[in-house]
Design a protein around this nucleic acid. Structure first.
Length: 509
RNA sequence: GCCGCGUUGGUCAAGGGGUUAAGACGCCUCCCUUUCACGGAGGAGUCACGGGUUCGAUUCCCGUACGUGGUACCA
């Protein structure tokens, strides 16, 4: 049964930003597919025409590209099982719905939205706040089960708006094995007669997911846990359509929860708590509002992916940092956690910090360049790389290279005078005069030599290192921060250093 | 309400009939560094509750509580 080539799919509906939970679903799909030398397909589930959002599909493509999780088949790149947009597959679905009607597993329903509304209103009780269109209710509604054949034919002939609903068995247990949860059982009396084909001729998710997974030869279906309750509908559909032998194995992934309890992590929580939820910036075309993404926040895609992988999965060892290649070889569904995980932005930051810390200086410099451009600063790439190397260990985000190293690009305008002035005196002033002069002969000297010379001079003038090193740092940077002082000198160069000494001396008077 | 799923420190989590119940993030202390950070050494902090089963349950079973998801012509 495992001779089939592994094929998985990610099937988002293009309605807005791509949630990090969605990216994690992509990740697990991708890892599983690549590990088994299988195919990863992207299918766009745009069956709800009322929720169409322009640009959302391109945005999803771009997110996947940024993450490095690109599909083997998609609307964009095509493939042998296209089209990959459900709206373009519309003519396909009706025949399967009709097939189900003929077999007695589905029926036409002519109830208008108003009639449905009033049914729910009428049947609503405190004990049953959400009445379902189920095997008992359907006997009282306007459908091909309650109407005569002649009436049904007449309504159909007149193009009366109607949907096709699945006919759920009244009293059956539906059991299946979920790859992450094990055996799961539902009772058919608890699930209603879901609409399969809408009045506009589009399938609902329920029909489309089954038909397309079948047609696209999907072998493993991963999706969020929120789909678990409707799994019995899908299982039955596979059976009723006669495709049981080809049904994919299911895996319902745990949800990503908000940090402060109470529910799935949503875009709003990110806004409220000050962290991104979407992979990349999303601009709502209707309102023009921009929701910040992990990419723009300064996350490295490797870090983002690594962080997501560890949210609900681990390899059983103490390792936490994994490359994509490692994840591909080590991933296993058996080790996916069953419970939802609260998202911890601090831990996410730590992952990014790790990746920035270990990234090569040149790549970091390239990533940082846009920030420099924005600041209107021009600097040679190798200089930027040197700076990046000097400050990266204290950066959680790429743009923080500026916060920790701005003084490499501009002379400080203000000084932490409180740290210098109280203990400032003529001896120190004199020391720096001499030091500045001495520096002239030290151009191109490495940091260690500069430090040795500085120390020697301090000793000669009977000054303690601590008394002069901090003022020196402040002349260079403006404050009590930055990498080791002599690394700063070596990077800035002697000429600029002497300028800053002169400027500092004037300010410290 | 009903149905499903879940429950190891504040968070991510390993483990799984007998352990001093790993590790990471965060927090605290100390060392290194006369800045900060990195690095290093420590510390506080956990098996939701109640019944079973068992010589022995955090681990297995059953309840309860709590959390979470679903309950649309949305996905």
């Amino acid at each position: 049964m495992d001779h089939k080539k592994v094929r998985v799919r990610f099937a988002p509906s293009p309605t807005g930003g791509l949630h990090l939970g969605g990216v994690r679903t992509v990740l697990f799909n991708y890892l599983f597919a690549k590990q088994h030398k299988g195919d990863f397909v992207l299918r766009i589930e745009d069956t709800d025409q009322t929720r169409y959002v322009p640009g959302a599909e391109e945005y999803i493509n771009e997110c996947l590209r940024w993450c490095g999780l690109t599909p083997d088949e998609s609307p964009e790149v095509g493939g042998p099982f296209g089209p990959y947009r459900q709206s373009e597959r519309k003519p396909l679905y009706r025949q399967y719905a009709e097939q189900l009607v003929k077999a007695g597993h589905a029926y036409y329903a002519f109830d208008t939205p108003e009639e449905l509304e009033s049914m729910r209103e009428r049947l609503k009780t405190p004990e049953n706040p959400s009445p379902q269109y189920n095997h008992v209710v359907r006997a009282k509604m306007r459908n091909s089960l309650t109407l005569s054949d002649a009436e049904v034919q007449d309504l159909l002939a007149k193009n009366t708006p109607h949907v096709i609903r699945i006919s759920m068995p009244a009293n059956e247990d539906i059991t299946f094995t979920d790859l992450v949860r094990g055996e799961v059982t539902f009772h058919t009396s608890q699930v209603d007669d879901k609409v399969l084909l809408k009045a506009d001729g589009m399938p609902t998710y329920h029909l489309a997911v089954v038909v397309d997974d079948y047609l696209m030869k999907i072998t493993h279906a991963f999706r969020g846990e929120e789909w678990l309750p409707s799994a019995p509908v899908h299982l039955l559909l596979w059976k009723f359509l006669g495709w049981e032998a080809d049904m994919p194995q299911w895996a319902h992934l745990p949800l990503i929860l908000k940090p402060d309890g109470n529910g799935k992590l949503s875009k709003r929580d990110g806004d409220r708590l000050g962290f991104p939820v979407y992979a990349m910036n999303w601009r709502d075309p209707a309102s023009g509002d921009i929701t910040k993404g992990f990419r723009e926040r300064g996350f490295l895609p490797e870090a983002f992916i690594n962080m997501l992988a560890m949210l609900g999965w681990n390899d059983g060892t103490e390792q936490e940092i994994f490359s994509l290649e490692e994840l591909i070889s080590k991933f296993s569904l058996e080790r996916v956690h069953k419970a939802g995980a609260k998202f911890d932005f601090e831990k996410a930051k730590w992952f990014n910090h790790q990746y920035i810390h270990h990234k090569d200086n040149e790549s970091l410099a390239a990533l940082f360049q846009p920030v420099l451009d924005e600041k209107g600063v021009t600097a040679a790439p190798d200089y930027v790389a040197t700076v990046a190397g000097l400050v990266k260990e204290r950066c959680y985000f790429v743009n923080e290279i500026w916060d920790h190293g701005f003084f490499f690009f501009q002379s400080p305008d203000t000084y932490d005078e409180a740290a210098v002035k109280p203990k400032w005196n003529a001896d120190k002033d004199a020391f720096f005069q001499v030091w500045s002069a001495q520096l002239e002969s030290l151009s191109a000297a490495p940091a260690a030599d500069l430090e040795a010379a500085f120390k020697a001079l301090a000793a000669e003038k009977n000054l303690k290192m601590g008394d002069v090193q901090l003022p020196f740092r402040i002349m260079l940077t403006g404050g009590k921060f930055g990498p080791p002082v002599f690394d700063i000198v070596a990077t800035l160069g002697v000429a600029e250093t002497r300028n800053r000494i002169a400027k500092g001396l004037a300010a410290f008077q």
